[in-house]
């Protein structure tokens, strides 16, 4: 990430490469490879196929959540409502598919309804943020607690067991050795990559993050792009909710706890700048892998899971401190 200034200097020359693929994005990859080698040397079990499957299962939910959050952070905004939308999605799913609390059995339609719920909550985020001009961290802080509150109200303090074989199959049934949920997460990654690189929305998101005033003057419908991006992020969080419900086998109101933290850690560790305009979903994939590999390494070394939250906190501070371009921001609030 420290290579960034030199990279931008060459970029302004005749380098034809698009700025998204420049060399700075390789720093997290180097960190990831180094981590893998170190942990592999300490505990050779790290490189076993079983461990890879285990890590992929841990990575699938942070990856899907991180994809949504990346788009928001690329615009220079932030989304704290990850846990709210995920919890709401997981709880609603658990009540719509074959379950232990009511007679519903909507199957695949349940999944579509949950995706629609995620999109709507994301849309509400965007509308409040853009139309009422409330900063995104405040809007999404409120929506975070509203989402968890609604999930709680729906459940009434209980948990709903999921009996649908299709949903449970996402976590249990395997294809080429990996659970279907992992393939679903990879599909989401490809979709996000396409949206980022080959659609107008993707271009606009980068433009907004690079300089909103300029973007607006160039005729980009800034408000609409923001609302669409929050809606898109909401859909990704809803997918995260579906995967979380599948993994746990039930929907409860605590299902989202701690996930916001991992998501933001993954995005910033991957090298996406909080100031917007730099980074992308491909870097978030690396960020997620760094977080998961480090956690896995700590587990292999016998470090308690409660310590991992603290380590993630320090990683956020280190990654943000390294990636912030101090010339761009004179006032930090």
């Amino acid at each position: 990430m420290s290579l960034d200034t030199s990279a931008s200097a060459t970029d302004s020359g005749a380098t034809p490469r698009p700025r998204r693929w420049r060399i700075a994005s390789w720093a997290p990859v180097i960190v990831l490879v180094a981590l893998c080698i170190i942990i592999g040397l300490i505990n050779p079990n790290f490189f076993s196929f079983g461990n890879f499957v285990r890590m992929s299962q841990t990575a699938m939910i942070p990856l899907v959540l991180g994809l949504g959050a990346t788009f928001i952070i690329l615009m220079g905004s932030i989304d704290l409502s990850v846990e709210g939308i995920l919890t709401l999605g997981a709880v609603i799913l658990s009540m719509l598919v074959l379950n232990g609390a009511n007679a519903n059995d909507l199957g695949i339609f349940g999944i579509f309804i949950v995706l629609a719920v995620g999109a709507s909550v994301g849309f509400i985020n965007g509308v409040i943020h853009v139309r009422l001009k409330v900063p995104s961290f405040m809007t999404t802080l409120g929506v975070w607690f509203i989402g968890v509150g609604v999930a709680n109200a729906l459940l009434g303090g209980m948990a709903t067991r999921i009996n649908s074989p299709m949903i449970r199959g996402l976590a249990i049934d395997r294809f080429l050795g990996f659970p279907w949920g992992v393939w679903l997460a990879l599909l989401c990654f490809v979709i996000a990559l396409v949206i980022q690189n080959y659609t107008r929305l993707g271009r606009y998101i980068y433009a907004l993050g690079g300089g909103e005033e300029l973007a607006e003057l160039s005729g980009i419908p800034v408000g609409r792009v923001r609302i669409m991006t929050f809606t898109l992020a909401g859909i990704f969080y809803a997918v995260g909710g579906i995967l979380a419900a599948a993994q746990l086998g039930l929907g409860n109101a605590q299902i989202g706890n701690g996930r916001l933290f991992t998501t933001i850690t993954a995005v910033v560790v991957g090298g996406t700048a909080l100031t917007g305009g730099r980074g992308g979903v491909h870097q978030t994939l690396i960020g997620v892998l760094i977080v998961v590999v480090l956690n896995n390494g700590m587990v292999l070394m016998g470090v308690k899971p409660s310590v991992q939250i603290g380590v993630q906190g320090l990683m956020i501070i280190a990654a943000v401190a390294l990636s912030i371009d101090r010339k761009l921001i004179r006032i930090v609030k």
Partner: peptide
């Protein structure tokens, strides 16, 4: 380190919770 306060304190909160 010029880290925005919401992210610095979000991270600090994680460290404190972990402690």
């Amino acid at each position: 380190l010029r880290i925005p306060s919401f992210i610095a304190t979000l991270a600090a909160g994680g460290v404190l919770f972990s402690t």
